Computed example of a mutant assay.
Amino acid sequence: MNMNMNMNRKQGQILSERFEVAFNQVHDALRDIVQINDDRFVVLVKVGAKKYQIIETYKKDLEQYARLRNAIVHEKMEIGFYIAEPNAKVVSHIEKIANVFSRPNYALSIATKNVVYFDYRDSILKVTAAIKEHGYSKFPIYKNKKCVGLLTSSSIVKWMAQNMENSSVNLSDSHVSDIMTYEKEHPIEIVAKDINIFEVENIFEKAHRKKQKIEGVIITEHGRADESPLGMITAWDLIQIDYTVD
Rank of each mutant, 00 (worst) to 15 (best):
R9E: 11
V42I: 15
L30S: 01
S154L: 11
A84L: 02
K46G: 11
Y120V: 11
G223Y: 08
K184H: 11
I218F: 09
S153R: 09
I72Y: 04
K51D: 02
T152G: 01
K126D: 14
K89C: 05
N144M: 02
T128Q: 02
Y58V: 05
L44M: 07
T152Q: 05
D39L: 15
F198M: 05
K138P: 08
K145N: 15
Y52W: 08
K126G: 05
A161E: 14
N6R: 12
R224G: 05
K50H: 07
K76C: 00
N196A: 04
D178I: 03
T244R: 05
S102H: 06
A129I: 07
Q240H: 06
Q35V: 12
M3W: 13
A129V: 08
Q64K: 15
S174V: 09
M7L: 15
N2Q: 00
E227D: 08
F139H: 08
V47T: 11
R103V: 07
V127C: 10
I141Y: 06
E221W: 05
K206N: 14
K213T: 09
P86S: 06
T244P: 02
N70I: 05
N144L: 14
A49C: 04
A71N: 12
R18Q: 14
R9A: 13
H186V: 00
E183K: 11
N163C: 06
D242M: 01
T128M: 06
D194L: 04
D194P: 04
R224D: 04
I36F: 14
K113G: 12
I203T: 08
V245G: 04
N163K: 03
E165T: 09
K59A: 06
E189C: 13
K50R: 13
S154R: 10
I97N: 02
K76G: 00
V90G: 01
S167N: 15
P86H: 03
S228F: 10
K132P: 00
R40C: 06
K76H: 04
K210Q: 09
I124D: 06
S168M: 11
V245H: 00
K46N: 15
D242W: 01
K210Y: 04
V176K: 02
M160N: 04
S16M: 04
E75R: 03
E85S: 13
E205L: 14
Q25W: 07
M164S: 08
K10Y: 10
Y82P: 01
V34W: 11
T128E: 04
D38L: 07
Q162A: 15
D178F: 01
A207V: 10
T181N: 14
N105K: 15
K51L: 10
K145R: 12
K213D: 00
N37A: 15
E189P: 00
E133V: 13
K211Q: 06
S109E: 10
T112S: 11
M1E: 12
F19L: 09
D226T: 07
F81I: 14
N2R: 14
K213N: 06
I190P: 04
K96P: 06
S109P: 01
I218P: 05
L68E: 07
I195F: 14
H134C: 09
D242P: 03
K143H: 12
R40F: 07
I36E: 07
I72N: 01
D237K: 05
V100M: 02
T152D: 10
I83D: 10
L238M: 12
I97V: 10
